[in-house]
Design a binder for these strands. Structure first.
Ligand SMILES: [Mn+2]
Ligand SMILES: [Mn+2]
Ligand SMILES: [Mn+2]
Ligand SMILES: [Mn+2]
Lengths: 218, 218
DNA sequence: AATTATATTTAGATTTGCCTAAAATTTAAT
DNA sequence: ATTAAATTTTAGGCAAATCTAAATATAATT
């Protein structure tokens, strides 16, 4: 499997969480920052190789095989992110791009030994669960911050957007993994939220609260 | 620079040690396990990009720029080999192929932090010197074991052939980095050597002694 | 139901890296 | 100095991954 094929599989895997039927070509193209025609070509190749099923105009669905392959790549990505943060002094907002490269290194032994070396972590620096060697993901009851009601409390458990700009924004607001927070007010007209964090009240847009996962404390 | 371009630069760098004029196309092709025609194509591209100078039929010579790029890749290769052996329990005879992949990861910060994490090592698990961030190599007065005379003693400091089969052969003979040895006899007709290592006498072919570097103890 | 708009696919090109076979050049041997 | 052998280059093609522009299918409007 080529590097590009792996990236497409990963993209489809992530998108399947948001699409009940097949994942549309356009969604895949957007995720891969490429054109729909390129996506079509690659989807056909991956279908040919039995990594996904595909009917023209009906989108793509990963096969069991494709899902397994995607999860392997995601496992490596998240393990490397742990390594960079915990061993090499990287900040959590600067690991993603390097992990995008490291996730394609092919060596079962390397992945296994890295996992062992890191103490078999279950979550990456962004709170995302790390699949084990068999592809099993730890259970994860995540809820969007935007789903909390006024006066509800929660603990930050992850983020939907892994981009450096969003993570830097969070750092500036003093929001990190396991940060405790309380919703003090929801502005009805634009759904923006006032949140109490470490004795400071901060205002978060709906766009922001949609991308923050919390464990409801109730 | 593409992954393939980096590998060619590295190949030319290593070959320049054995060729006083330009490195012949055939030598590059052989090192890259490809055909002379492919090598010609790539040499032209690298010359176009000013990584090497090239006159048809006269072979290739790295420019200062090309040499710098090659050394950067070699630095990463050897640092990763240290990491695999010292942190991830790899055996020295199984790190090369994985390092061939890892050496292409692009991140100045990663290389620098890895170097720091490993304690700024100066030699890799095979005894090869690791260039520093500026491309400077530690001085290295290596001599082939085959150059020693009868009754001379030496300390093993590195190997020319990094292949798994050769390293496994060395392990079997109990030869490793810093192993002390003494030449007890040289068979004149085929230049094979009898060497005393840890109170055992073993016979080594010329092919073997040409690939073992020692520091003469005299 | 017909029309318009959107999504998707196909057609035709481009770049990188590789291949084989044939031509050209350099080197070695008669 | 010719001829023969080895090396190197050129010519022509192929597969992966991408692109733009045009054609086709599906979805939304009137
Ligand atoms: Mn990431
Ligand atoms: Mn992550
Ligand atoms: Mn190596
Ligand atoms: Mn080495």
């Amino acid at each position: 499997m080529t590097l590009s094929e792996e990236n497409y599989l990963k993209a489809v895997y992530h998108l399947e969480l948001n699409f009940s039927k097949g994942v549309p070509t356009n969604a895949i193209a957007e995720e891969m920052k490429t054109k729909a025609s390129s996506a079509t070509d690659m989807i056909k190749r991956l279908a040919e190789k039995k990594y996904l099923s595909y009917k023209p105009y009906q989108g793509a669905k990963l096969t069991a095989n494709g899902k397994k392959s995607a999860i392997k790549v995601i496992r490596k990505h998240r393990l490397w992110e742990c390594f960079l943060v915990e061993k090499l002094n990287f900040n959590w907002d600067e690991v993603h791009d390097v992990a995008e490269q490291l996730e394609h290194i092919q060596s079962e032994k390397l992945t296994e030994e890295l996992d062992k070396f890191l103490g078999r972590p279950t979550y990456d620096p962004h709170g995302d669960p790390i699949p084990d060697a068999n592809g099993n993901l730890p259970k994860f009851t995540k809820k969007k911050l935007s789903e909390l009601n006024e006066n509800e409390e929660g603990i930050c458990k992850g983020f939907n957007d892994d981009s450096s700009s969003f993570l830097k924004f969070l750092a500036k607001q003093d929001i990190g993994l396991n940060t405790h927070l309380k919703v003090t007010h929801i502005e009805s007209f634009d759904e923006s939220m006032t949140v109490l964090i470490k004795n400071k009240e901060i205002l978060l847009s709906k766009t922001a609260t949609d991308n923050i996962y919390v464990e409801s404390k109730s």
